[in-house]
Design a protein around this nucleic acid. Structure first.
Lengths: 241, 241
DNA sequence: ACCTGAACACCGTTCAAGT
DNA sequence: ACCTGAACACCGTTCAAGT
């Protein structure tokens, strides 16, 4: 998990608790694990310090000694989940496919933990796992022969692109569940379709015409189009000079 | 503003208040305007129903008669701000530039109201202004000769792409201000650079090597790269078949 | 070194009651 | 038709006090 060699970034919102020995029922790791469990089961709105304390059989105030604040806890949760992202070792001959694989892995993790992208907003992920993913992704981009500048811009854009897609895909949260069940999602899509189809065609010729496409538009296909366009365009730019 | 011809979508979280006559100091429009003013001045975390009531010289409970809930209010705020997005009339010869202009306008609005993208998360924007923007964007895509299917996928991806970029760009919120001031942003960037540069080079050869690039990476350039790649790739796909 | 209960300063929302 | 104060059920966080 945490790599003890690497000091945390200076803006980390966490108290210094280097001297932790025995593994007690309540510890930083246990709190993070419990938080992720709660988030996976009940979604972002269910996570409160009081509720999490209950879950661990402790008072809410106890948590503050370990994680400093709710914000600090979410920093830890974010890095823990970024740890689930898989980044292949760079192979210059396959760098484009490898970049796509990285993007797909990122999307998979974001779908598995639908609150993840929302937690990441406003945070600069620089925990040990984030560093590993960043380093690995940059390695692939450099293996592709991108200039230093384009490698960094491309890396930042890849994250934005995948996050933009998944924040949309996972944005709708149910009260009780982290994500609306598929049939509910379909119902929302159907309602949107019917509403679009009911608009006055003189004013909205294109929308009414395309109402059916909206309902059947496939997110998997859409994601593949996105990373195809992105990786292809990046490669083209790299080759251009 | 609101177009009375178009009925609201069925999932709109607003009470039906069709019979509104005199323009009083407190009205749906006045509440939305006050909310946007407050958000512009102090950011997303400053908006509470109590605070907004104060701002309008009314009790918080009074707002509920007009906007139903905070969620309903944010639906209205979102559509009002989408109204600031400019979409050019479709010109088949210039559709690629027009798509980029639409994306740039979207980004400008999101920078002017840095909380906007966060408000839009989890909402399907289907107010009158959103319909206008969607119809206009689809018109440009159809003018470009895209198939119905690719036009819809491309439209959805364009939004995701721009939002992914701007949610990153506007993600850091200050307590007192809607957005960190530029010098604070630079300080954050410098801290990140220094931290990256301080990492062990054996473990992070690419990050340490590229630390400088991270600090100087220009968001305007990055955005142009993004829409270049995206629009170009979309055109290529459209031409491919 | 760790955990606690109680308190502070907030939230969104409801509702009976007013005009 | 519109607005109110008071109440309900929550928040994150602090802090003196405990062990």
């Amino acid at each position: 998990m945490a790599d003890p060699e690497i000091p945390p970034p200076p803006w980390q919102r966490l108290p210094d608790r280097s001297s932790r020995k025995r593994r007690e029922p309540i510890s930083r790791d246990a709190i993070v694990a419990a938080a992720i469990g709660l988030l996976d089961r009940e979604g972002l709105s269910a996570l409160s310090m009081r509720r999490l304390g209950e879950e661990l059989g402790a008072g809410a105030a106890s948590l503050y000694w370990h994680v400093g604040s709710k914000d600090g806890l979410l920093d830890l949760v974010l890095d823990e989940l970024i740890g689930e992202v898989e980044v292949p070792d760079p192979d210059p001959a396959r760098w484009q496919q490898q970049l796509k694989e990285t993007a797909r892995s990122q999307r998979r993790v974001s779908l598995r933990h639908p609150y993840l992208v929302r937690v990441s907003i406003g945070r600069i992920p620089m925990g040990p796992n984030a560093l590993r993913v960043t380093e690995g992704t940059l390695a692939i981009l450099r293996a592709g022969g991108l200039s230093p500048r384009l490698a960094v811009q491309g890396y930042l854009l890849l994250i934005d692109t995948v996050n933009g897609f998944t924040v949309d895909e996972t944005g709708v949260e149910d009260g009780g569940a982290p994500q609306l069940p598929p049939e509910e999602l379909q119902k929302v899509a159907d309602m949107a379709r019917d509403y679009i189809a009911s608009l006055p065609p003189e004013q909205f010729p294109n929308m009414t015409d395309l109402a059916g496409e909206f309902a059947f538009s496939d997110p998997d296909e859409r994601f593949e189009i996105l990373i195809d366009i992105f990786v292809d365009g990046l490669a083209r730019r790299a080759a251009a000079r």
